[in-house]
Nucleic acid binder design. Structure first.
Lengths: 348, 348
DNA sequence: GTGAAAGCGCTAACAA
DNA sequence: TTGTTAGCGCTTTCAC
C-alpha cells in the first residue's frame, strides 16, 4: 500500500507538497500538482485515515448504534443518517447492539478506541451507565427515534403520545366507540408508555371513558406476542369493533389471530398499526397505520450532530417531527353506516 | 482523552510498561501492574486504535458491504458475521450500499482509507470494477450469500439451483403437476437465473415438461412487482394449481393479487416462497418456503475471512451450505385427495 | 510555492 | 522486569 513518501519520491517533491495537493490543491503550482496527481493515480495511493486521524484528532466518522439491524423501521432511519452524512463528508460506522446492554457497551468501547467524532444512538433506553460512557467520551451524542427525559441529550423523534392520541381519534372519527389497544411494554418509556397514555387520553377526552385499562392488553412489539395479546383481549372484550396496536407487527399478530378465530378484518373488527413499515402494505388487509418520518429522523439526527460538532447552538434539545395517519384497508368506516341509513334514530 | 503517556507519568513508569499491561500483562510485575491498572481506570484511558493500527498495520476490523440494510435476509447474515467476529476479536464496520455501484465504490474507498483487514461482500454482482478495487486493496475478500463464477473469490451461499429444484420437487410431491413460477430477474446471476434454471430442470425431469418458459413470469424480488407478475401469470395460465416464487416478498405479492381476484390460497392455488424471512410467518396463510441458513452463512463467511487473514488454506473456494424446505400453510396437499378417494380412477 | 522538521499515540526492538 | 528509542504515515508550523 503506497505511502505519501513513495509518492513524493516518485516525482521528486517533498511529502508536504503531496499532502498539499491532497488537502489544499490550490496552494500548489499547477505543474507540480499535475505531476503529483499523476503519481497518485499510478501508485494507487490512498491517504491513511489512521495517520490522518492521529494527528488531526478528527476522523470525520460517526458511530451509529442501532438496536436491531433487521428492524425495517431502524433501517430507514439509518438511510437518512447515511445520506445526510455523505452530504456532509462524514462516514458512518454502523453498530448492531441487538438490544443488548453488554453489546452496546462493547460497541461504544470500540467506537471510542476508533476515536469517532460523534454518536447517534437509537437503542431504546439510556441507562445511567450509557450516559456515563457518553460523558467520558466527551463527544457529541444525539438520540434518534428515542429520547431521554432524565438526561440532557438532544433527540429527534415523533411525539408518540400525540400520535397515539391521533390514532384513537381517527378510529373514533370512523364511528368506533368500543375500541381497545394492544400496547407495548409499559416499562418502555419511549414507544410503550407514551402510546399507552395517548390512547387513554383519547378515550377519556373523546369517548368519556374512564376504565380504559381493561381494554388494553400488553405485549412486546413482536408478532407472536401480538397474537397472544389479541387472544386475551378478545376473550375479555368480544364486543370491540376496533383495536389499535402499538406496532405493525403487533397488528399483524392481531389480524392473524382474528383470522384464526374466523373474525373478519375489518368487517367485524378493525385493526390499526403503528410505524408504517413495509409489512403494513404487504398484508391482507393492508394495514391502516400511523407513519413516522423515519428517513427524516435520521437526516435530522445527523445534521444535529454536525451542528454540535461545529459548536453551533441547537434551537431545542428535543425535536419532535410530525407523524401522519396512513389510511389503508384494515379499518372499517362505521360512520358511513349512519349516512346510508339516515332514517334510523341516531345512537347516542 | 487520556494518553498512554499521561498514564505512565501518573504512576511513574515508562510508557512501555503501560503498553505492556495493556497488551501482555503477564510480562509486568504484579505490583506495577496493579498500579498501572489503577491509573488506567482513574484516567479512563482507552488505547487509541488509530495509533495502534498505524504501527501494527492491523486494525482487527473488517468491513461488511450489504446491499440493503432493510433486507431482513441480509440482516440475519450480518448477525452471524458479528457474532463470529466477536468471538475472534474482530470488529465489523457495516456499510450500506443501497445496491448502488457508486455507493459501493465510495464505501470501499472509505474502508481502504481506514485500513480494514478484510472485506465481506454481500452485494449482488461482482463487476470488473469492484474486483480491481479488491485487488488493489490487497486484503482478503469473501462473498456472503453471493458468488462469482468469473473471479477467484471465496464465497459462501446455498446452491440456489438445487434449492429451486427441491422446491418444485416438493410441489410435485404434494400432487401438483400444473405449476408455474415467478422468477427474479434473469440477469441476476445469483438469485435470478439459478432459481429459474432449477425450476426448469425439475419440471423437465419430474414432470416431463418441455415448454416451461410460458409458465414463468419475471419480476423484481419485491412485493409490487410480484403482484403484477402474478396477474400476468394468472391471465395466461388460470389452470395452475401452484406457483413457486423466487422470494417471500414476491410470494406475498402473489397471495395478495390472488386474494383480490377472489382466489383462495392454498385451496385453489398454492404459493411457495423463498428465503424464510420474518414476513413468511406473519402472513395469511403462513408461507411454505425454502429457508437459507442466513446466520450460518454469515458465521462461515467471517471464519473464512479469518483463515485467509491468517494465511491458512481454504478447503474450497466456493462453499455451499444446505437449504431446507419449511412447510407451513400456503401449499395444499393434492396427493391426499387421491388417498381419501381411493376408488376413483387415478389421473394419468 | 516549497521543504525541513516536529510530533500525533502507540508498539517493538534493543539495552540495561 | 523495565526503560530508551525509533518510527508507523501523516499534517502543520516555520523558514526559505
Amino acid at each position: 500500500m503506497a505511502t505519501i513518501k513513495e509518492v513524493a519520491e516518485r516525482c521528486g517533491v517533498s511529502i508536504s507538497t503531496v499532502s498539499r495537493v491532497v488537502n489544499a490543491p490550490e496552494m500548489v503550482s499547477p505543474e507540480k500538482r499535475r505531476l503529483v496527481e499523476q503519481a497518485i493515480k499510478e501508485l494507487g495511493y490512498t491517504p491513511n485515515a489512521l495517520a490522518r486521524g492521529l494527528i488531526s484528532k478528527q476522523t470525520d466518522t460517526v458511530g451509529v448504534l442501532m438496536p436491531d439491524i433487521s428492524n425495517p423501521y431502524a433501517a430507514e432511519v439509518v438511510k437518512g443518517i447515511e445520506d445526510a452524512g455523505h452530504a456532509l463528508g462524514i462516514h458512518v460506522i454502523l453498530c448492531n447492539t441487538d438490544a443488548s446492554s453488554e453489546r452496546t457497551i462493547r460497541n461504544l468501547d470500540v467506537l471510542r478506541q476508533k476515536r469517532v467524532d460523534g454518536i447517534i444512538f437509537m437503542s431504546k433506553a439510556i441507562s445511567e451507565e450509557f450516559y456515563q460512557i457518553f460523558r467520558k467520551m466527551k463527544i457529541p451524542v444525539v438520540l434518534a427515534a428515542t429520547e431521554s427525559l432524565v438526561y440532557e441529550l438532544p433527540s429527534i423523534k415523533i411525539n408518540d403520545e400525540q400520535a397515539s392520541y391521533d390514532a384513537a381519534k381517527y378510529l373514533v372519527s370512523r364511528g368506533h366507540t368500543r375500541i381497545g389497544m394492544i400496547s407495548g411494554p409499559i416499562g418502555d418509556s419511549i414507544a410503550g408508555l407514551p402510546r399507552f397514555k395517548g390512547f387513554k387520553r383519547a378515550c377519556r377526552e373523546l369517548l368519556g371513558m374512564e376504565d380504559v385499562g381493561s381494554r388494553v392488553e400488553f405485549s412486546s412489539f413482536h408478532f407472536q406476542s401480538g397474537c397472544e395479546a389479541m387472544g386475551r383481549l378478545y376473550e375479555r372484550h368480544p364486543e370491540l369493533t376496533a383495536v389499535f396496536c402499538a406496532s405493525d407487527e403487533i397488528a399483524l399478530g392481531a389480524v392473524s389471530l382474528l383470522h384464526d378465530l374466523g373474525i373478519a378484518v375489518p368487517d367485524t373488527v378493525s385493526v390499526m398499526g403503528f410505524d408504517n413499515t413495509k409489512i403494513s402494505w404487504m398484508s391482507i388487509p393492508k394495514l391502516t397505520t400511523v407513519a413516522q418520518p423515519m428517513y427524516e429522523i435520521g437526516r435530522t439526527a445527523m445534521h444535529t450532530l454536525d451542528k454540535l460538532r461545529a459548536g453551533k447552538p441547537l434551537e431545542q434539545l428535543r425535536t419532535y417531527l410530525p407523524h401522519e395517519i396512513i389510511e389503508r384497508e384494515s379499518v372499517r368506516d362505521l360512520s358511513k353506516i349512519h349516512l346510508a341509513a339516515p332514517l334510523l334514530p341516531k345512537q347516542s
